[in-house]
């Protein structure tokens, strides 16, 4: 384990991964906000059918689409659609956009592409590579930091593993060369980081552990921390840690004014405590199983609805991760 991980925002490319519902989109958006405010030129790239980031950063704004738009000073958001990326790629390769458009509209071609595995991931990462290469007239990078909100598929890793697989399956030609460039970008341990986001529950904990294991074994991408999102706060005020057990001692017939029965009160308190303890347990387990430092984000009772909510995630996110006390 490297003692001092590179600060998150000093990377060039951060790929945020996690199952649906873990809040990885919020994490990507909050990081984007923080980085832009620090004066960096930031891009948040969404992958998938729907746009979620614009809603968080600028509620009520119009879709940003493939071309993308600046939603806050220095903060651009776009959504990578595989077919659009394919069109752009083929256009660049062949130099004749009308032919490319004909091909893309061809029914048989679409059928073939719908059925073919892997190319979506490859072309999406290819687009990320292309964005990463973009420069301003003065030669400085167009984007200092690119945050990718990776698709919430069964294994976030399949996404990253495709360039390697293509490199192995395709013997020669431009495709192979480009797959190699993408692979090199992913495996650049200085510039690129995979940022897993998990919840402190059994399922995501185990999946994150498996992810960490496979990253070490199969993919050369750097991972230096795990974000554990929505960690519940203590259920009772200080000094009352045993509140539910205390309530359980009340006789069943206790007369209470304007309240449910003593038994119900005890049960409610027990539920809250159990939720909290489970949360604590699995947060620690994630650190132990992945052997990675963890970054805990607070649970926000109102949910995350806009930039103000995102702001509350920023301090913990950009701070140093907590080394796990194994």
């Amino acid at each position: 384990m490297s003692p001092a991980p590179t600060p998150l925002l000093d990377r060039r490319l951060v790929i945020v991964t996690g199952k649906g519902g873990t809040g990885k989109t919020s994490v990507a958006a909050a990081l984007g906000l923080a980085a832009a405010r620090s004066g960096r030129r930031v891009l948040v790239a969404e992958v998938g059918r729907d746009e979620h980031v614009p809603r968080l950063l600028a509620p009520g704004s119009a879709p940003v689409g493939y071309a993308g738009r600046e939603l806050a000073p220095g903060l651009t958001v776009l959504r990578i659609d595989p077919f659009e990326a394919l069109g752009e790629y083929l256009g660049l390769q062949l130099g004749v956009r009308p032919v490319v458009d004909l091909v893309l509209r061809n029914r048989a071609f679409r059928q073939l592409m719908e059925a073919s595995p892997g190319w979506r991931e490859l072309i999406t990462l290819g687009k990320v590579w292309h964005l990463e290469q973009m420069q301003l007239p003065d030669g400085s990078p167009r984007f200092d930091l690119i945050l990718v909100d990776a698709p919430a598929t069964g294994h976030g890793l399949t996404f990253l593993d495709v360039p390697r697989v293509v490199g192995a399956a395709v013997r020669a030609g431009p495709l192979r060369k480009h797959a190699g460039l993408v692979e090199a970008m992913i495996e650049d341990r200085e510039r690129t980081l995979l940022l897993p986001v998990a919840l402190a529950e059994e399922l995501p904990a185990r999946e994150t552990a498996e992810l960490a294991l496979r990253v070490r074994r199969d993919v050369g991408i750097a991972v230096d921390r795990v974000v554990v999102n929505a960690v519940a706060g203590a259920p009772f005020p200080p000094g009352l840690d045993d509140l539910d057990r205390l309530l359980a001692k009340l006789p069943e017939a206790t007369a209470l004014e304007g309240l449910p029965s003593a038994k119900t009160l005890a049960s409610c308190a027990a539920h809250l405590r159990s939720r909290f303890e489970l949360n604590r347990y699995w947060a620690a387990e994630i650190g132990r199983m992945t052997e990675l430092p963890i970054v805990e984000l607070p649970h926000l009772a109102r949910g995350i609805r806009g930039p103000l909510d995102l702001e509350r995630l920023v301090p913990a996110l950009v701070g140093a991760p907590r080394a796990n006390a194994a």
Binding site: Y89, L90, V99, N106, V170, R171, G173, P174, L175, R176
Partner: peptide
Amino acid sequence: RSARRVLQVIEKVSGMAFLED
């Protein structure tokens, strides 16, 4: 013709060997 065009495009990008496989 349309299928031919598509294959030409794929070939240009991926290389002939890939299509053979």
